[in-house]
């Protein structure tokens, strides 16, 4: 009797019955949906609409103001959403630039062995300098602002993907089908384009998505420290550094919710990246 009821419940419980692939797809769909929703929402928020309202200053969270209001009566939920949208946009710019750098370096290395040693040295060099320091230097050097931070983050986050791609390409280059391709008279560039690129495209996609969380966190930190986006931008880093001044007066919600929201966004990217990796990885394909 007990066994029977257990059977029935497992048949009718859709989540228990899903295979790993469906679960992975669902997780990806959900995370991507939330991230896209955040960006779209933020695009609809006009910075001018975040008006000061001196009748509603320093209000703790309520149903009217989910994240409370700040010292000028601005709704913190709206500010946070706008800030998250900006974070994701800068994260996207920096991640894509980073992975373009990684792809170019990895492929140049696969075609020319002298340049490959130089690239290996460059990766080690960049890994030996603390990221945050380098980002600040590059950001200041390029005049700060959105451009400076994006470049700073982009120019420091290509190292791990470059490493992965170099190792992967090296292995493909030793395969028999690449050697045979050379015997058919195909050039190194032809082989890189037709054989290697399609075989590493998974690593490129996953690698790019996994740079996102780092890019977003580093942008926020640098901005928080005052070396990134200008204080007029509605960035999370700006919100957090402003909030620090009001923490002492007991306005805990000013930092807590924007900080938490940033953390969630970062986690979502991580989850999306890991799940996309799982889905694209052929070794786990038939689960």
């Amino acid at each position: 009797m007990a066994d029977k009821s257990k059977d029935v419940s497992s048949i009718y419980s859709p989540i228990a019955n899903m295979n790993l692939r469906t679960k992975t797809l669902l997780t990806i769909g959900l995370t991507v949906f939330i991230l896209v929703a955040v960006v779209i929402t933020s695009l609809f928020i006009n910075s001018a609409d975040i008006t000061t309202n001196f009748n509603a200053m320093n209000q703790p969270p309520s149903f009217e103001h989910l994240f409370g209001t700040d010292w000028m009566g601005r709704d913190m939920f709206t500010r946070t959403m706008k800030g998250l949208g900006l974070s994701v946009q800068i994260g996207a710019g920096a991640s894509i630039l980073s992975s373009i750098i990684a792809i170019i370096l990895a492929f140049v290395g696969s075609i020319n062995s002298k340049l490959d040693s130089f690239i290996a040295w460059l990766v080690d060099l960049f890994l030996s300098v603390p990221h945050i320091l380098l980002i600040i230097l590059i950001s200041i050097g390029l005049g700060g602002g959105a451009f400076g931070v994006t470049m700073g983050v982009a120019l420091t986050h290509w190292t791990s993907l470059t490493r992965i791609l170099r190792a992967e390409i090296k292995q493909i280059n030793t395969s028999e089908f690449v050697k045979l391709s050379q015997r058919f008279g195909k050039s190194k560039i032809w082989i890189a384009k037709k054989h290697i690129l399609p075989l590493v495209i998974t690593q490129i996609i996953v690698g790019t998505i996994l740079i996102f969380p780092h890019a977003i966190m580093h942008e926020a930190s640098v901005t928080f420290l005052g070396f990134g986006l200008s204080p007029h931008e509605p960035a999370i880093g700006v919100i957090l550094s402003e909030s620090m001044k009001y923490l002492a007066t007991g306005n805990w919600w000013l930092a807590l919710f924007p900080g938490l929201a940033l953390l969630i966004i970062v986690l979502l990217f991580d989850i999306a990246g890991e799940n996309i990796k799982k889905m694209l990885d052929p070794t786990s394909a038939n689960e």
Binding site: S175, E176, F177, L180, R183, F184, G185, H195, P198, L199
Partner: peptide, 21 residues
């Protein structure tokens, strides 16, 4: 050393000389 090789070798294991994708 360059271009199509006039002497071609057929291997014992055909699956190794084909791109799986």
């Amino acid at each position: 050393t360059k271009g199509f090789k006039p002497v071609q070798l057929i291997y014992q294991h055909p699956e190794k000389v084909m791109n799986p994708k």
